[in-house]
Design a protein around this nucleic acid. Structure first.
Length: 614
RNA sequence: GGAUCUGUGGCGUAACUUGGAUAGCGCUCUCGGCUUCGGACCGAGCGGUUGCGGGUUCAAAUCCCGCCAGAUCCGCCA
């Protein structure tokens, strides 16, 4: 259970400061923002006096003195003093420890009424996942875990574009060349796709591809059948990869079913009611249905100064653009177009025990969608179309939906030699499968040099450690930043790494295992390492909330690293099982247990398995 | 032309949203620590004009303005 002590204390102190200020004749608002843990000047410090200084023409120090003299501090505060204009609080360490360690398990405020769809994966079904797709999926998985932990109701959704240009190209190639798969299907097809592109640069088959696209869209054609089969096989192969990374989905929506169910027509009917959406009768965009940006008030910055001031939704030939499809799809997600899809089981039991459903011509209706929030994990390059999607909802007067569409725009993963390209095949050698294989090999080598585990245990542990290394490394970088991939960094087992955090979990577990059953909590005078740990522990819940609010899993990895490192320093400095007194032993065991539980929860959020031994 | 993102010791990064006291962590490098609850470890040290210049403020890596550098986007592609 993640500690809420920090948020509570902060709230209580800010309330105490507010009352004291008011008693001293000051009116302050943002007290909680001016309070934080501090190093070197008391344990917690408050800077409100600075804000009041100018207004009241007094020195911050004088004001701080006035306020602090009137503070009626909570019982866990040892003393309050003033230095350089800051009000500093010293904690009674034992009281503080009692709060953090003995914390009553408070239920997290329920937000269950909020439904969240997290969309991630979404790899075109013509190639294997590469390390860029992996970043996407890991972000999605972790964000979903975090929101789930905070009590939201989560649907993990995968969007499969089985009707795109890339799909048409590989289908054409497949039918015309009749090559046979020689390896894992997604890998094989991905490599074939590179050949298609080479072929297309030397031969003009544009007309063929274009007719392929049309035939694929029609139910019952040979082409649609083959394309469907290929997509199915690729997604199954991709999911094999996903499962090895312990990444799962609840359902997938396929482009074919979006077309089949006329989602677009339904969406268009709604859009056409907006005065900002119109059919052009002349000019460059004659016969197109567009959003006219000129008319929209309060147009966001990103749309200003653009070359074109209309966004095409339906082309003059009547076909929809990508943005139009995505708008309609979001209408479904938010329940504006209800009961559209039928679902059937795609895989009845993923390794996590749950099924994945896919949209299908025949099947059952399911109670999904009707979301309050849709978190879309999509490459930063799609920021603009995503903004257009939001704008469309503003245009039809659904600002609530526009606000509910969260685009987690993450930076690309590139190689030192350049970008990963499906067409050029620069991804070859950098598939998610390749990465995991290499990670496993290095982890196995490492673990062999450590302990004597049975072969089976060794395999299990090394696979878990390998995943930890890779996942942690991807997650510790703030999402908006571009990642230049490096094997050595991705397979880091030391320092700021997944295995390091796992290791501290295992160490804590072993200490607790050897200690046996815990008695009643007793608290004794603590040293600096213990106190530092307690301060960190107290922040657990606040950290997860921050990660959720900011859509940034690196908030979690940072905290996990800090906590693991503080724990390491703690047990290095203070014997737990051989503590000097029973009271100390009790307290240290309790700290150890609390650290173990907290780290365990953090690792789980990151999709990393906490290990008892490694 | 417009928009967005990025720029922090040799390398990878955190703190920026909400300004706060000494810019944190890891890697590398140097030195030290295992008869000790597990060394995937710990301690000490070297290493910083936070891209540049202004401004606001008691206080700026953080906010504002202007530059510079890199990336991306602005299609009847997806």
């Amino acid at each position: 259970m993640l500690s809420t002590a920090y948020s509570q204390i902060k709230q209580e102190l800010s309330e105490a400061v507010r009352r004291a200020s008011s008693a001293a004749g000051y009116d302050v608002e943002y007290t909680s923002q001016s309070i934080d843990f501090s190093s070197g000047f008391g344990d917690i410090s408050c800077s409100v006096a600075f804000r009041l200084s100018k207004q009241h023409k007094k020195s911050p120090n004088a004001i701080a003195e006035e306020i602090s003299s009137k503070i009626d501090a909570p019982v866990y505060i040892e003393k309050v003093d003033v230095k350089n204009g800051f009000i500093n609080f010293a904690l009674k360490r034992n009281e503080f420890a009692a709060i953090v360690l003995g914390e009553k398990k408070k239920p997290i405020p329920s937000v269950k009424s909020k439904r969240v769809i997290v969309e991630y994966g979404g790899v075109n079904p013509n190639k294997p996942w590469h390390i860029g797709h992996l970043r996407n999926a890991l972000l999605g998985d972790t964000i979903a875990n975090i929101y789930e932990k905070l009590g939201y109701s989560i649907e993990r959704e995968d969007y499969i574009d089985d009707l795109g240009l890339q799909m048409a190209e590989v289908t054409w190639w497949f039918i015309n060349k009749n090559n046979k798969p020689t390896k894992k299907f997604d890998q094989w097809l991905g490599e074939e796709y590179v050949h298609v592109n080479k072929f297309m640069s030397e031969n003009d088959i544009k007309a063929d591809i274009s007719s392929m696209l049309q035939l694929m869209e029609q139910d019952g054609t040979y082409e649609s059948e083959i394309a469907g089969k290929i997509a199915d096989m690729v997604v199954r192969a991709q999911y094999e990869t996903a499962f090895n990374y312990k990444i799962y989905h609840d359902f997938m929506v396929k482009e074919t079913d979006i077309i089949r169910n006329d989602l677009l027509k339904k969406g268009l009917a709604i859009l056409e009611k907006s005065k900002f959406i119109k059919k052009m009768t002349n000019g460059d965009y004659e016969d197109c249905i567009v959003i006219d940006l000129n008319d929209i008030k309060g147009l966001p910055e990103e749309f200003k100064g653009m070359k074109e001031t209309v966004k095409v939704l339906i082309r003059s030939d009547g076909t929809p653009t990508y943005v139009a499809k995505d708008i309609a799809f979001h209408m479904w997600k938010f329940g504006i177009i209800p009961n559209t899809f039928k679902f059937k089981t795609f895989i009845d039991k993923q390794p996590n025990g749950k099924p994945v459903f896919e949209t299908a011509p025949e099947g059952k209706e399911m109670d999904i969608a009707n979301a309050d929030i849709s978190i879309n994990i999509i490459d930063v390059r799609q920021s603009y179309p995503q903004a257009v999607v939001r704008l469309a909802f503003n245009a039809i007067g659904r600002d609530d939906v526009a606000e509910g569409i969260m685009h987690l725009a993450y930076g690309e993963v590139a190689l030192e030699s350049g970008t990963l390209s499906g067409r050029k095949g620069t991804w070859i050698g950098f598939s998610a499968d390749d990465l995991l294989a290499e990670a496993q090999e290095r982890a196995e080598k490492l673990i062999k040099s450590k302990f004597n585990f049975s072969d089976e245990e060794q395999k299990r542990i090394s696979s878990s450690v390998a995943l930890a290394a890779v996942k942690f490394e991807f997650m510790r970088i703030s999402p908006e930043k571009k990642i230049i991939f490096s094997w050595d960094r991705a397979l880091n087992f030391e320092g700021n790494s997944g295995p390091y955090v796992q290791y501290m979990y295992a160490r804590a577990s072993r200490i607790l295992e050897q200690a046996g059953k815990a008695g009643k909590l007793q608290i004794d005078k603590m040293n600096e390492q213990e106190f530092a740990l307690l301060k960190l522990l107290s922040k657990g819940h606040e950290i997860v909330e921050k990660a959720a609010r900011e859509y940034r899993p690196n908030v979690i990895t940072d905290y996990a690293s800090d906590l693991a490192s503080a724990f390491s320093k703690f047990y290095e400095a203070s014997p737990v099982l051989k503590a000097e007194s029973e009271e100390l032993k009790s307290m240290r065991l309790s700290i150890t247990a609390s650290v173990r539980d907290t780290i365990g929860e953090l690792l789980s959020l990151l999709g990393i398995e906490p290990l008892q031994r490694m």
